[in-house]
Design a protein around this nucleic acid. Sequence first.
DNA 1: GCTAATGTCTCTAGCAACTATAGCTTCAAG
DNA 2: CTTGAAGCTATAGTTGCTAGAGACATTAGC
Lengths: 146, 146
Amino acid sequence: MLTIGKLGAQAGVKVPTIRYYEQIGLLPEAGRSAGNQRLYGRKALERLAFIRHARDLGFTLEAIRDLLSLSDNPEQPCVAADAIARAQLAEVERRLARLTALKAELERMVVQCAGGKIADCRVIEVLGDHSLCSTDHRHPESEDSP
Amino acid sequence: MLTIGKLGAQAGVKVPTIRYYEQIGLLPEAGRSAGNQRLYGRKALERLAFIRHARDLGFTLEAIRDLLSLSDNPEQPCVAADAIARAQLAEVERRLARLTALKAELERMVVQCAGGKIADCRVIEVLGDHSLCSTDHRHPESEDSP
DNA sequence: GCTAATGTCTCTAGCAACTATAGCTTCAAG
DNA sequence: CTTGAAGCTATAGTTGCTAGAGACATTAGC
Ligand SMILES: [Zn+2]
Ligand SMILES: [Zn+2]
Ligand SMILES: [Zn+2]
Ligand SMILES: [Zn+2]
């Protein structure tokens, strides 16, 4: 049995984050010791590691909630899980495309600046006028959050 | 003179966002009409367009605040502005590297899944075990937002 | 001139996904 | 037996907005 601190250390998750996951129902309520402290077993560790890994791959907590409930029903077909993963891949590809454009613009800005006064700074100038950009990098609508 | 709605339409910024920028001090308090509605001139439009463009390039509001106050002092040297832009470029490059790794892992996952039961789903399996991954994509610390 | 539709006002609350703080209780080492 | 680390709860803050309620302003059509 692990205390919350050990669990967090093993899974690479901070203690308040574990309590937060429990609070929003991503982790089941943990058993308690005589002194009211949470105690975890191997299953909790696996579940937390799953969450952490999925977070590291950029899945939202909502997607993870769905993935976890799928993985709790091993006999069901896996199309739903695959669809979630493919949606995440598509999202990553969208962000990648946008970031690639941003990188190009930022590079142009910093390279073109001769480094004089603000009045002549290419960075400030370009920020004030998108028509000086070489790509249309604008935020289409949907969000690339974290 | 523009009302807040016209200003937003011209700059491509939603009305509540403009009020929010004023609230946090990114835009100066606007003058008001007889009926207490905000009125904007050309300078406000330029400033808002600057903010919008910088946001589109991924700068944080804090960075934009600094860039704006720099651009208000045109005689100063532009090293500080260039540094902010280079920091943003570095940040974008970090996110790009991470997203590239994520994309590779997600592709591996969806390609390897044969599409049977959850119990055999490669997506679920990999999410539960990072050692099945081909790269070390883990979250060093910072996040990939916009 | 009147009315209805739209636009704007303030204020509050909510989103994701945590993180930090305060003020307590419990546990483990010495 | 004492001390310090680790745990508990509850609340508030972070970033960059977005949505809603309910009241006032402006504009267009008739
Ligand atoms: Zn410069
Ligand atoms: Zn641009
Ligand atoms: Zn599958
Ligand atoms: Zn992995």
